[in-house]
Design a binder for these strands. Structure first.
Length: 445
RNA sequence: CGGGGCGUGGCGCAGUCUGGUAGCGCACCUGUUUUGGGUACAGGGGGUCGUGAGUUCGAAUCUCGCCGCCCCGACCA
């Protein structure tokens, strides 16, 4: 993409409404614009990141054997009356009346809808296990939206639901989600720690939240630093292997890690003192097992092997995709701007032409732009008639992990400069070497 | 929802107390200049001052209502 043709309305000054880093930087980098309180438009670069996160979530869900689908944003109140949550959910639910006077709502979650779909189409244990999910916009009418996309009213979220014949099978679904979520966050370049949590309004027994450590997190968290060393890496996972999934679940849930809601000071004291950590965390996902709560109230039953009609065991699982954009920035930025992890960056490399209009510089930039594009390395070429300083400041702000700097001075010696946004370290390379380095860097992403 | 604050060109703000018909910086346009970390100079375009009513010869400014947004708290993915 050529910056001269890209809609990237960057702001030199900080808009007064933004108080935390991710919100400030998303506005300044031209990723989002506020539409009303807690509701945002996603401009091209923000949208690109959002889509990439969505893709990673899809890939990992499908890898775990789950079924993608899409449910509507607007739901009928009738289903919610059936589960009893129409009254329970309270003011956070945006209620709408259609022209016929029917009570509708903008969905904050989809347990009722999915259970209705399930019960109408599944009658036998032979159709289980089943996990359905979708990635869709949700709405919760927060009393006080804040922190940009981290706590908006409208948000983009993956939510999934598993249906199993009994508790052991449902617990395997739980473990499977634990593993697939760990993988998902790892791929995004994030360290997300599963922590024992409260079940909140969704209800249920077993639940873990996934938290990204960041100073601006909304929750206080306590953990054994040993958990930071755990890594899924590229180990082979068989999602149908109950024992393996259970073992990984145990591996990650054994070290102490809890939010302030479930914190147990006595248990925490058993952790060796030098490994006892507390900080702030941003919740980016949660998994639940809630048994037959919805299948009982909504009559979602199947026939088991003995011919008995039994309620299915369910769980639900969520990843806050739009919130993740903010969380990643909170976890990865400096005073100049964003620092994107390679896996989620909107463009893989920025090309800075230091002397627009100079024949040698223009030619070298064009050639590299075309070559990188052909290799799928998605460059963003700053071809504006701007001074070097302005181009550097823009690149630093939008946070592309690598920058190719090209100007007459270097070209005289046949070199261009490749700079890491994260470390600031530059190396001078001939263009072909620079391309080879980028290919190598992105090969593993 | 309790407490506090703010709405003035795209953005950041001054002007409001003490009414006289709108200003600064950035951004934008034109020209010259400059060119490896947000160049400099000159010229230029753009605002019914959130909204409605009232007071007044005259309202960004005073009064009342309404709307919107932000911050702290309680709450929440």
């Amino acid at each position: 993409m050529r910056l001269s043709r890209y809609f990237l309305p960057i702001l030199k000054e900080t808009p007064s409404e933004a108080s935390i880093a991710s919100h400030r930087l998303m506005l300044r980098a031209g990723m989002i614009r506020q539409s009303s309180a807690g509701i945002y438009s996603w401009l091209p670069m923000g949208f690109k990141v959002l889509r990439q996160l969505e893709n990673i979530v899809h890939e990992e869900q499908i890898r775990a054997g789950h079924n993608p689908m899409l449910m509507p944003t607007v739901q009928s109140a009738d289903l919610w009356r059936e589960s009893g949550r129409y009254e329970d959910y309270g003011e956070e639910m945006l209620r709408i009346t259609d022209r016929h006077g029917h009570d509708m709502l903008y969905g904050p979650t989809n347990e009722e809808l999915i259970t209705d779909i399930f019960r109408n189409s599944v009658q036998s244990y032979k159709q289980l296990p089943l996990t359905l999910y979708h990635i869709q916009w949700k709405f919760r009418d927060e009393r006080r939206p804040r922190f940009g996309v981290m706590r908006g009213r409208e948000f983009f979220m993956k939510d999934g639901y598993n249906f199993d014949i009994d508790k052991p099978a449902a617990m395997h679904a739980y473990n499977r989600h634990m593993v697939s979520y760990l993988r998902t966050y790892e791929r995004m370049g994030l360290k997300a720690i599963p922590m024992r949590a409260d079940s909140g309004p969704i209800g249920g027994d077993d639940t873990h939240e996934f938290l990204v450590l960041a100073d601006t997190g909304e929750s206080e968290v306590f953990y054994d630093s040993a958990i930071l060393d755990l890594n899924l890496g590229d180990r082979a996972v068989d999602y149908d292997d109950w024992d393996q999934c259970a073992a990984i679940n145990t591996e990650w849930t054994t070290p102490y890690a809890r939010t302030d809601e479930t914190h147990d000071a006595a248990k925490f004291a058993e952790v060796p003192e030098e490994r006892r950590c507390s900080s702030r965390g941003i919740e980016v996902g949660q998994i639940f097992y809630f048994g037959t709560k919805y299948s009982d109230s909504m009559n979602a039953k199947v026939v088991n092997g003995d011919g008995d009609l039994v309620p299915v065991h369910m769980g639900s699982h969520g990843i806050g995709v739009s919130r993740l954009v903010g969380a990643i920035i909170e976890a990865s930025h400096d005073d100049k701007g964003i620092i994107w992890p390679e896996a989620v960056t909107p463009f893989k490399v920025g090309i800075v032409n230091l002397r627009q209009g100079d024949e040698a510089a223009d030619g070298a930039c064009e050639a590299l732009y075309k070559e990188l594009t052909a290799l799928g390395l998605e460059p963003l070429y700053d071809d504006r008639e701007e001074r070097a300083g302005a181009k550097f400041a823009t690149m630093d702000l939008i946070g592309l992990p690598w920058r190719l700097t090209i100007g007459p001075r270097g070209l005289k010696n046949g070199v261009v400069e490749l700079t890491s946004r994260k470390t600031g370290v530059s190396e001078e390379l001939v263009p072909a070497e620079a391309v080879a380095r980028l290919v190598e860097i992105y090969a593993g992403v």
